[in-house]
Structures are given as structure tokens and as C-alpha cells.
Design a binder for these strands. Structure first.
Lengths: 229, 229
DNA sequence: TGACTAAATTATGAATTCAAAATTACATTC
DNA sequence: GAATGTAATTTTGAATTCATAATTTAGTCA
């Protein structure tokens, strides 16, 4: 996607593309709450656009599963259910595993050093208990590996799926125990990357996903039992 | 997706959803040729709809990679390049591998028998040299395995990617040698499914994809050297 | 008071309209 | 005759309009 855009000197964005991005942010940030109606009129006023491009954007988001269109009843922010988490994570796991394998084949030594650097920063965040910082750097590492896989299709697919889980993943604040386990997993990941052991890195990334899935599921069940549905 | 739709008695389709399906067919069938402009006006007249729903559909197809939107220059049918084939197939391979594993866990004995039946039909098509029939039944088997995986997200993702390769895959008429190899691979696949050996089925499906990728690549290169670009 | 019906209101889906951008056709110059 | 610049035409992107479906409100009757 970036590759193609860079060919043309000026990468103009159409309104609907811009809106897709903006709406993704609103949904991930929770500004548009899961299970609620997408306030078409409000958003038009907020972004100062007409309904046409906004609705185009909603159609795209719907095909990505971020919103759900109900015929004649408008668009709703998709509520992430346990069932969906159990569906999406394994798929994401398989894709990240592939990314790991490909990354080991294609990543440059310089890039490996850059990943290691971010990893070390992340460890600092962990040790100082900075969960937000940890999260951001964590995501960054996954993005760097994805990028090193040199496969835009894979990148796009992963990001689309990630998007759907971003919010619950962020909210599922890890327990101290899970957090330390995650850090150990990440140590392993970076070591395997440095060793360029693609096969094993793939397996480890998939396991890492599986652990995240459980963490998110625990959060969802905890939430469900605390709040009334 | 089907699950949710089946809740509501009447599954009405909005115009744009209908159009997404119709346009997919036109693109896969080659009626809309790769690399050509999507004739907005013509299609509006053909389907007797206004530009609004048609353009909504194009936005969705663009996010699936079937068409490419150029700002202020309209929509173009995406031309499948060798690079794209090399990108999409591995991703599809990883997803099908996952599907195989999950299918072995979740498929019923009855479903296995049904797959076997379609497989046997496919062999008949092979032996009578009916390539079209073989293709259809082949696709059907893959769909059945996907369905048995009981993961709608996986199904949707696979189908979206498959769509992008459908046309070249169909055109890349297999050589006699490749065809017989494909049949042997399918024998193995069905046997592993009956043995419910998920791990091995996954591996085999991924290999099968890899072989298909090479077959398609050979076709694309052959085409490129025969025709002027 | 509470359930049901009907009218009024609002929101949605899709067609139409309109301004801006791109393409084409044409003329002019070298 | 090719190349450049300009006007006319077409196409695109987005706003607006309009018909229809859904929701809300008001009103009726038990």
C-alpha cells in the first residue's frame, strides 16, 4: 500500500479514506463505545462532511468487522464477544507465525538491532511499571517484525484483525504474573529473531498470541460478571 | 456472518451488498478485465442503480484489493502481478493450514464422509479430463474444510484472499503432470482428514498451496512473455 | 394505570445535483 | 509536423434531496 502510494508523488487522500482512519481511532479509543449506534449525524457535523463519504467509510469498516450494518437500522459499533476473541486470535496467531518466519528470512541485521533497541526500551517500561509505554513499544515491535516480513498483504491482514481486538487487548490490563510471563516470552522472541530461527519464532509468536487470548478472555468474563448485560 | 443473518428471519440485502457480490463475479469471470477501468456509468445502467450504492461497493472491493482506487481518476480492476501472487499465496497457505488443524478437531464423522464423497466425484472428473468440473469440486472441498473449522473470521479472511487469486488460478490450466501431482496431494489431504491428523493436514495444505503458487506463477510468466506488456 | 393503535417524527437508503478535477479536442506556435 | 497551451467535454467526489422504513410520541380504550 505504501509502496504503491510512493510511486505517485502526491498521495492525496479521498474523504472516505480519511474518515475510515478517523473512525478507526474513535472506535479503538472507545470514544464510540462497543454495542452503541454509530451517530451518523453527529459525526457528519463533527468532521464537517456530508453523509455520503461517511457512509462509504462505514461500509468499509463493516467489511473489516469493526462496525455492523443492520438493514434500515444503521451502523452499530461491533461488540467484541468471547466467541469472537476465540475466533480472531487463532487467525492472528497463524498470521504472526508466518510473519515471524518470513521476517527471519528477510530482516536486515540493522533492523534486528533496531528491534532489540525497542525491546530494551520496553523492558525499561516494564521495570518502571509503565503499562501504557509498555503497550506502545510492544505494538511497535510486532509492527517491526511484520514490516520485516516484506509482505504487504500479510501486514494489511494482520492489522485489520488486530484492529478488532485492539480495544479489549488494551483494556485487559495484565495481571502482574501474566505481565512477567509476557516479558519472558518477548525475551525469547527477540532471541529467536537474532538467531534467525524462523520456525521456532513462528511457534513462539503463536503461543504468545494464545496467551494473550486467554488474558483477554479472562478480562471479558470478569467484566461480564461484574456488570449487568 | 451467516449466523447473525439467520437470526433475523428475512435476510434483506442492501443494494451495495448485492452489488459487491455482483461485481466480484464480474471481476472473477474476467468480464471486467484486470488493468482496465471500472466503467461506473455502464454498470449503473446495467444494474439499474444510481452511482451512490455502486461507489459504496467499489470502496469495499478496494479494501479487499479487488479494485484499486485512484483519486479523481476512478476505480481500476486490480491487475494481479507475480509479486502479489508471491504475497497472497503464503498468507492463504498459513490460513488454510490453520483451517485444516481446526477442521480435524471439529468436523463430524458425517461431514468427513461428505467430503470423501465430493473427493471421489472430483477424481472421476480428473479421470475423464473434465478440468472445469475438477476445479469446482476442488473449490468445494476447500470450502467444506473451511466450514468444518467453525471459525467465521477464518472463513471470511480465506475467501477474501482466494477471491484475489481466483481468476489467475482458474486460468493457470494445470499441465498434465502438475494435475496428477495435485490429485495425489488431494488423496493425502482426504486421508489425513479421515485420520484427523490436524498437524500433518495443516502442513500438507500449506504445501499444496505452495505448489499452486508455482503453477500460477508459471502461467503469469508464460503470459507475460507471449503477450506484449 | 397499562396496553394497544395511529399519527408524527426521525433516520436510513438511494437518486439526483453540483462543483472541482481530469481528459479530450482543438488551435497555435515553432 | 511535433509540441505546447487553451477551451470544451466528461468524469469524479461529495452535498443535497427525496422516498421509504423505523422509531417515537400521543392518544384511545379497557
Amino acid at each position: 500500500m505504501t509502496a504503491k502510494a510512493s510511486v505517485h508523488a502526491i498521495a492525496r487522500k479521498s474523504l472516505h479514506q480519511e474518515l475510515v482512519g478517523r473512525l478507526q481511532v474513535l472506535i479503538i479509543s472507545g470514544d464510540l463505545a462497543p454495542g452503541t449506534k454509530v451517530p451518523e449525524k453527529d459525526l457528519c457535523e463533527r468532521f464537517n462532511v456530508s453523509r455520503t463519504p461517511l457512509r462509504e467509510a462505514l461500509k468499509v469498516l463493516a467489511s473489516d468487522g469493526l462496525v455492523t450494518l443492520e438493514p434500515n437500522r444503521g451502523a452499530w459499533v461491533t461488540r467484541v464477544t468471547a466467541g469472537e476473541v476465540e475466533e480472531v486470535f487463532p487467525v492472528l496467531g497463524a498470521l504472526e507465525a508466518l510473519a515471524g518466519e518470513l521476517a527471519c528470512q528477510n530482516i536486515t541485521d540493522e533492523e534486528i538491532r533496531a528491534v532489540r533497541k525497542v525491546h530494551d526500551e520496553m523492558i525499561v517500561s516494564y521495570e518502571s511499571g509503565d503499562l501504557d509505554g509498555y503497550f506502545d513499544l510492544n505494538q511497535k515491535i510486532h509492527r517491526m517484525i511484520l514490516l520485516a516480513a516484506r509482505n504487504d498483504t500479510l501486514t494489511t491482514a494482520c492489522q485489520a484483525l488486530s484492529m478488532r481486538l485492539q480495544r479489549p487487548r488494551y483494556l485487559a490490563n495484565m495481571s502482574g504474573e501474566r505481565w512477567s510471563a509476557a516479558v519472558r516470552e518477548h525475551e525469547k522472541i527477540i532471541n529467536l529473531l537474532e538467531a534467525r530461527d524462523g520456525r521456532q519464532l513462528g511457534v513462539t509468536l503463536a503461543e504468545h498470541m494464545k496467551a494473550k487470548q486467554n488474558s483477554v478472555l479472562r478480562y471479558i468474563f470478569a467484566e461480564k460478571s461484574s456488570k449487568a448485560t
